[in-house]
Amino acid sequence: MPNTIVARDLRKRYGDVRAVDGVTLSVEEGEFFGILGPNGAGKTTTLEIIEGLRQADSGEVTVFGRSPWPRDPALLPRIGVQLQASSFFERLTAREQLRTFGSLYGVPDRKADAMLETVGLTEKADTPVEKLSGGQAQRLSIACALVHEPELVFLDEPTAALDPQARRNLWDVLRAINTEGRTIVLTTHYMDEAETLCDRVAIIDRGRILRSGAPATLVRGLDAATRISVAGGVLSEDEARALPGVDDITDDGVSLVIVTRDPSSVVAALAGRGALDGVQIKGATLEDVFLELTGREYRA
């Protein structure tokens, strides 16, 4: 598959801060690519360099084989960028907003209205953007990025500050877009989001890519322990400790959690005792990978 984005050794500094410090990545056509990192990791700056909003101090980037900097009007219709949910014309309704953005790309009004349907905002068509809820505004801003049917879509933390329903709803929209064959690059700090949506992720911190690959591959590579929890009282702590392959036990009365790197032996032993009722098995997640790589200390 041809690479849609190729970035090599991108660097950008603001004063003493190395916002992007040698980022190399490539995104294939049709891929759903996630850039993960804590706040201030350099996700947004990386994205802005690739979009052509900022010039890198050094390094190379091509999008569809062309340089996004300086502004290339031939490249722009092929990409769609979703910025903050507030990047709208003031006091226009959702429909007017979308039609105006559509017209910038020569998209007829009819098609713009259809996009409103795609993101589920038909009922809010005549609502001024200032009166939309956070999730609705977010969906509208994504619709504005998609209205001209770009081949490559950039989404910068599209689900930040959304409630769980709105997030799920948006995920469905994004999956549908990706299924149509569009390449999507998204930044997020929600690990579950990246794990469900992305084909491949790059974990970035302090301006560097720490690791990249498919979420499942990253999780497996972590060699993390599995946590098996059984209902409290089914098994005593001593009995549990005697099971094969157990690393650690915690019992809070409600449930007893067995930490193991050999889950199949533990589960088989539990099955032999008929203690599988209400059992929960939790493997490592992308979040564990992320915390392993970026550390657990709190950063403001």
Partner: peptide
């Protein structure tokens, strides 16, 4: 200033319209 602070300016810059 509103266009710049709300990000509309950069959004327009990313459209093919001069």
């Amino acid at each position: 200033v509103t266009w710049r602070t709300k990000g509309l300016l950069r959004r327009l810059r990313l459209s093919p319209v001069p």
